[in-house]
Simulated assay, not measured.
Amino acid sequence: MAGMGAGEAIVATAHAAFLVVGLVLIRVDILEHRLPDRIVLPSAIGLTALLAVAAAMAGDLQPAGRAALGGLTLMGLYLALRAAHPAGLGGGDVKLAALVGVFLGWHGWMPLVVGAGAAFVLGAAFATVMMLAGRAGRDTHIAFGPWMIVGAWAALLVT
């Protein structure tokens, strides 16, 4: 991280942490169909804190405020979806939405919208392929956390 300011190094660290946590959560969700609170919640709090410190060091709190609002907004959307169809999303997905929302919100509203949408498009595409291949049916539970995380990274690539 040579040549980077302290705030930029903190943002880079936050991204690296989101990558590592994301990979762990993808593995756990695929294998166990759960997103452990002991990983998701501290990660959301830690990411929010890191980004707030980076914003304060840069003298511009707007990205940190947008990140916090992004986390609350995406979590609220997932909470509404879970309330409307409890079998469709798990509580871990709702909590992961806060983490993903903070991460994408830091980058802007467009990455947040694209990342949120990408999760559903990628998840649906995967489910369709699995059904066409005869490996899943209408009642098959498919881990959604991986698509939320992959969708977040995809959003950063295309926005």
Rank of each mutant, 00 (worst) to 15 (best):
A67G: 03
L99R: 08
A136V: 13
T48E: 02
A56M: 05
T128E: 01
D93K: 04
V158N: 01
V114M: 07
A17V: 12
A58R: 10
G65D: 08
A68Q: 08
V150R: 02
R135N: 04
A98G: 10
L104T: 05
L19V: 15
F144I: 04
M131L: 07
G22L: 09
G145C: 07
G92Y: 14
W153G: 02
L112Y: 04
G115F: 02
M75P: 01
V113D: 04
G134L: 06
A54K: 01
H15E: 13
T48P: 03
A80W: 07
L41I: 15
V28W: 03
P111V: 10
G108Y: 10
L50H: 01
M1R: 12
R27S: 01
A83Q: 08
G5W: 09
L157S: 06
T48R: 03
M130R: 12
V114H: 02
L132P: 08
P111I: 02
D93I: 06
V20D: 07
A12E: 15
L77T: 06
L77I: 11
L89D: 01
H15P: 02
R138F: 09
A67P: 04
P111T: 03
I10Y: 14
V21A: 03
R27C: 05
P36S: 13
G76D: 07
A68V: 15
A136Y: 13
A143P: 06
D29I: 10
A133P: 07
V53N: 04
P63Q: 13
L74Q: 02
W153N: 00
M110A: 13
P86Q: 06
A136D: 08
P86S: 02
V121G: 04
H85Q: 12
M130L: 15
A87M: 08
E32F: 13
L41W: 12
L72T: 09
L79G: 10
W106D: 02
A68N: 08
V53S: 07
M75W: 10
F120Y: 15
P86H: 12
V158W: 12
L89G: 11
A84C: 07
G151E: 01
L50W: 09
H15F: 14
G90S: 09
G134R: 04
L157T: 00
A52E: 12
H107W: 15
D29N: 13
A152P: 06
G101N: 11
L81C: 06
V129F: 11
M148Q: 14
G117P: 00
M1W: 14
G115C: 07
A133L: 15
F144H: 13
T159W: 03
W153L: 03
A68C: 13
A52Q: 00
F126A: 11
A133E: 10
A155L: 06
G145F: 03
V53G: 00
I39S: 15
A154N: 06
A155N: 09
Q62Y: 12
L156I: 08
E32M: 07
G123I: 03
A80K: 00
L61M: 11
A143I: 06
R27I: 11
A55D: 08
V150F: 08
L112A: 06
A9W: 05
G76L: 03
K95T: 08
A44G: 15
E8L: 08
V24W: 15
